[in-house]
Simulated assay, not measured.
Amino acid sequence: MEGTYYLQIGTILHDRYEIKDILGAGGFGITYKAWDNTLQTEVCIKEYYPVGIANRTVTASQVSVYTNADEASYKRGMQRFLREARGLAKLGSVKNIVNVHDYFEENNTAYMVMEYLKGKTLKCFVRENGGKVDEDVAIHVACSVLEALQHVHAVGIIHRDISPDNIYICDNMEVKLIDFGALKQEIAELNKSTSIILKYGFAPPEQYTSNSREQGAWTDIYAVGATVYYILTGLIPQDSIMRMMEDVLVPLEEIIPSISKNFSDAIMKAMSLNIRERFASAEDFLNELPSDTETNDTKNRQQRKKSYKDNYVKSVKKTKGRHEKTEKKENQHSSGRKK
């Protein structure tokens, strides 16, 4: 990313974590793959590094601020970063949230150490599966994210950036909520800009205002609805600001006639432009989701999610077995030719 200088490979942080690779950079931070020398395991480390404020020379680890005028904004953002890390660390036992193991200040910046996930983003998962998913998979994703949000909202954190980019599908089909956007919101307010954080089609109208006090659990609920709409249809929903001028968002049941009405109604309610017409909480939204086309029995819903995971794993093993048989035949053929 232009204007960003990463930590050098091999850098040791906190006398414990060795930087192994650069995974990416965004508007407010850099993400690294690292090795935990204490626990002897791979971890993911996010470094607080707001674009347009932070600076670092190519070979240095220390972060500086461009101007004295930026110093207060930088420090304020760093404290927000650490508060968010502390909040997420308290949710370590929640399976559908990326676990935060550690956080600390160093190099005039802050770091968050998280579990290293193996899998792909929901966006990639959908693309690799033909551009959309069936209702069972969508329900599995929605339920997993909403279960996570119940815990997140309970400790006073709003995600603010839910989209297919920030939902992770692990290799075992577990769903993880990643890359919280509360800090991005604060930086946007400091820079008087929303362009660095809002994703077209997934952000509700209240996020286009400069007043974050208008945002709450309902903000995340809209984004979950928009994400499910997208993975079911393969279509990015009409952006909320455009909907405010002329709402032409096509109801799910008109695009997918076979979808259960309860599910379709729940998603469209979550995407209401009026905050008061959305679900009041993640729990309320979750309770309206069907476990199948007729009921919303929690036990059946969990059994179906397990069944989908089992079938997915069996499919992967079956494909792997075919590859191994092919390789064995090729090796036997090659050995025969040598004789």
Rank of each mutant, 00 (worst) to 15 (best):
Y200G: 03
Q185N: 04
I167W: 02
K184A: 14
G119C: 07
A142C: 15
A138D: 00
E128R: 08
Q185V: 13
A85K: 03
A203F: 06
P164D: 08
F104W: 15
E115V: 09
N108G: 06
A182Y: 10
N191R: 08
Q79W: 02
H140R: 06
R127I: 09
L88F: 11
M114A: 10
V100Y: 02
N99G: 11
L177Q: 08
N172H: 05
K120G: 03
A154P: 07
Y200C: 08
I158N: 12
E128N: 08
A138S: 11
T121N: 03
F180H: 03
A148G: 13
E206N: 12
E128I: 02
N107P: 01
H151T: 06
C124S: 11
R160W: 06
C143L: 14
E115S: 09
Y111I: 04
G119I: 05
H140C: 07
I187R: 09
M112Q: 05
E105M: 15
V94C: 13
G87S: 12
G92Y: 06
M114V: 05
R83Q: 12
R127E: 09
S195A: 13
N172T: 08
N172D: 15
L117R: 02
A154Y: 04
N107Q: 15
G130T: 08
H159P: 07
V133G: 03
A188L: 11
K95D: 11
L190I: 14
K184F: 03
F81C: 05
V100R: 02
E105L: 15
E84R: 07
E206A: 10
A138N: 10
D134M: 10
V175E: 01
F202L: 05
K192L: 12
Q185K: 11
C170R: 12
S163Y: 05
L91F: 11
V98A: 14
V145G: 01
Y103I: 09
N172C: 02
N129Q: 04
A182C: 08
K95W: 08
T121G: 13
R127K: 13
M114N: 00
P164W: 04
I196M: 12
R160P: 02
Y200K: 14
E174A: 05
K176I: 04
V126E: 00
A138W: 00
D102Q: 15
K132E: 00
Y200A: 15
D171N: 13
M114E: 03
V94K: 06
V152C: 07
H159L: 02
K90V: 02
I187D: 07
Y168G: 06
Y103P: 01
Y208G: 13
V133T: 09
K199Q: 12
S163N: 14
V100I: 15
V133A: 04
A182W: 06
K118P: 00
Y208N: 15
K123V: 07
K118E: 11
S195D: 12
N166A: 12
M112L: 06
K120C: 04
P164R: 03
D136F: 08
A142D: 09
S195E: 14
I169Y: 00
L190C: 02
A142S: 14
N129M: 00
